[in-house]
Simulated scan of single mutants.
Amino acid sequence: MKIGCPKEIKPQEFRVGMTPDAAREAIAAGHEVLVETQAGHGAGFEDDDYRAAGAQIVGTAEEVFAKAGMIVKVKEPQAIERKRLREGQILFTYLHLAPDPEQTADLLASGATCIAYETVTDDRGGLPLLAPMSEVAGRLAPQVGAWTLQKANGGRGVLLGGVPGVAPAKVLVIGGGVVGTHAAKIAAGMGADVTVIDRSIPRLRYLDDVFGHQFKNAYATAGTTIKLAREADMIIGAVLIPGAAAPKLISRAQLSELKHGAALVDVAIDQGGCFETSRATTHQDPIYEVDGIMHYCVANMPGAVARTSTQALGNATLPFLLALAGKGWKQACADDRHLLNGLNVHAGKLTYEAVGTALGLPSIPAAEALTI
């Protein structure tokens, strides 16, 4: 199969869909790899690195899309990229369709087969292709939140770890999954007073067993959430419902109850955000203020550390990429129910129920798509 890797064109996105090592593995397995020139530059991978791996460098994205049977990316295809997709082509990337009706409509119209990293599952109930970026975003969240809290940026002017004689900042992490756990670890490591809330008792038990007194945890009722939010200098939104739109856990009306200049870091923004006042921002213009509360809602946070993120993502996606290229998407998905869970769109049909529910669109079971 010809595998194509175009350069990412979303603003301030420096990651790339395939590393040179991944290209080498795919070529060793008998496939051709086409990489758009300079696609890896932002992550520190140059054209010569891909050539040394055996990949072919092509001059334009149009050529990549025209020649490749499978397109491998990082971020959801932008409008111009969606127009280049064709019937029968495989798209393997993050999609986050639930809050994005325009992208969904375009992918359905393309006739392409679209497999979303964020809904591929594993035997432990995890999301193995989302996890590495969740780890990166979680570890970045306290870092960018600490920057947002600086007075020059509109924040409260609070140092996360405090100093002797001055209390540290209070950090509330909403959601105790991969993002929340990594955010809490880093925030606590920076000296903050951290509380994680979640609705899963087993998850809270795990956090308590593993991390002990490094940070506190509590059950996430609506009352507990707003009580702790009122006390917090920073609130990190780390809630995920796989494939679906994130729930809105702090309303605009409740912003008046928060500390003036508090920082909201919404890591769930790819799925629509978990604060009512969240809207996607970019690394170039990352923060904004609503009712005296600072919001950091960059939709591709891991892109800020593109080399680390690209390597982590490439490690996770490579086995699935090789299966799709080697077997074809139908056989690969028939052999692996977890990969099948990644199927979101095929031949003009929506194949992920949570997306259909979020957008008010009909969907079919992914297994049914195998017969189309």
Score class of each variant (00 low, 15 high):
320 F>N: 15
133 M>E: 13
13 E>A: 10
196 V>H: 02
165 G>A: 04
244 A>K: 13
272 G>E: 12
230 R>Q: 13
296 Y>T: 05
110 S>H: 10
172 L>N: 03
130 L>K: 11
151 K>P: 02
134 S>Q: 07
295 H>L: 05
303 G>H: 08
41 H>W: 15
335 D>V: 03
341 N>S: 14
224 T>K: 08
308 T>H: 14
287 I>P: 04
152 A>D: 14
371 T>I: 05
53 A>E: 01
293 I>L: 05
165 G>W: 00
41 H>K: 15
342 G>I: 04
112 A>H: 07
136 V>W: 06
106 D>M: 10
21 D>C: 03
327 K>A: 07
50 Y>W: 12
338 H>Q: 07
215 F>D: 01
236 I>H: 00
155 G>S: 01
268 A>K: 06
93 T>C: 15
97 L>V: 09
222 A>M: 15
55 A>I: 10
1 M>G: 13
47 D>G: 15
257 E>F: 01
307 R>C: 03
279 R>L: 03
197 I>W: 03
312 A>T: 05
299 A>C: 11
222 A>C: 06
359 L>R: 08
131 A>Y: 05
78 Q>G: 09
328 G>D: 02
305 V>D: 13
244 A>I: 11
128 P>L: 14
215 F>Y: 14
119 T>C: 00
335 D>Y: 04
142 P>V: 07
356 G>C: 01
63 E>C: 05
66 A>N: 06
132 P>Q: 09
284 Q>W: 04
